[in-house]
Amino acid sequence: MNDTIEISASSAIELVKLDLACLIDIRQPFELEAEGTIANAISLPLFQLKKSLGHALNEEEQELLDADLPDPHDVQHFLQLINGLHYTKERILICVCNSGRRSLPATQLFRELGYQRVFSLRGGYRALT
């Protein structure tokens, strides 16, 4: 994979413990129910994020999206939250999905938006358990 955007579970845990990073859980709500949540992680489903930012979803993503199109207030709230964590509190953002596959494009999306200290958790949620 791409070591420049991936981070190991042990490194991620240490950064969170030191209050230098926060976890962004990009899994869908049904995945959180099935697999479990991560303490203190911010839940932000990837497909909702993509749709909020005006990115097209493929057919499978659209099918998995079990929420309505976010309204402008949701988008503004999300950007305020992420900007507050990333810039004001100077936190590293670490994207987490189940296996580490969806968090890679999520990390790329954040980086395209100008958030350079964003990483994908190698192995995803399963690497944490």
Rank of each mutant, 00 (worst) to 15 (best):
D25A: 04
L57K: 10
G36N: 08
G84S: 09
P72H: 11
S8W: 03
P29H: 14
R117D: 13
L46S: 07
E35H: 07
G124K: 03
N98K: 13
K17Q: 14
C95Y: 04
D3L: 11
R111E: 05
R27K: 05
C95L: 13
K17C: 00
C97K: 06
I13A: 05
I94V: 08
Y87D: 06
G84M: 04
K50S: 11
L57N: 10
F119I: 03
D3R: 12
G123E: 08
A39S: 14
P72R: 11
E33T: 15
G114V: 03
R91T: 02
N98S: 12
A67V: 05
Q116S: 13
S43L: 09
I26L: 06
P29D: 13
A39N: 14
L18C: 00
L81F: 11
I82Y: 01
R27S: 03
C95Q: 08
E31P: 08
K51N: 12
L15F: 13
G114K: 01
A12I: 07
Q28C: 02
A9F: 04
P105Q: 06
G84N: 14
R27E: 01
L113N: 04
H55K: 14
D3F: 05
A39T: 15
L121Y: 13
Q62I: 00
E14S: 15
S99Y: 04
H55G: 04
P72Y: 09
L81Q: 15
S103Q: 05
L81S: 10
Q108S: 06
T37I: 15
L46Y: 14
T88S: 12
P70S: 04
S11V: 07
Y125W: 09
L79R: 12
F78E: 11
E61N: 09
Y87P: 00
R122F: 11
Q76F: 08
K89Y: 05
D68F: 00
L65N: 01
E35A: 12
R101C: 01
N83T: 05
V16W: 03
Y87K: 06
C97P: 09
D3K: 14
R27D: 02
I94M: 04
I38G: 11
R91C: 10
C97S: 12
L23R: 02
L53M: 12
D66I: 13
V118M: 09
K50G: 03
S103W: 04
F30V: 14
Q62D: 11
S120W: 14
S11T: 14
Q28E: 15
I7N: 02
A67F: 02
F119K: 09
L85P: 00
A34L: 15
T107F: 11
A34E: 14
L65Y: 01
L121T: 10
P29S: 14
I5M: 13
D74F: 07
A106Y: 07
V118S: 10
I82C: 03
G124Q: 05
H55P: 04
I5G: 00
N58Y: 15
K51G: 02
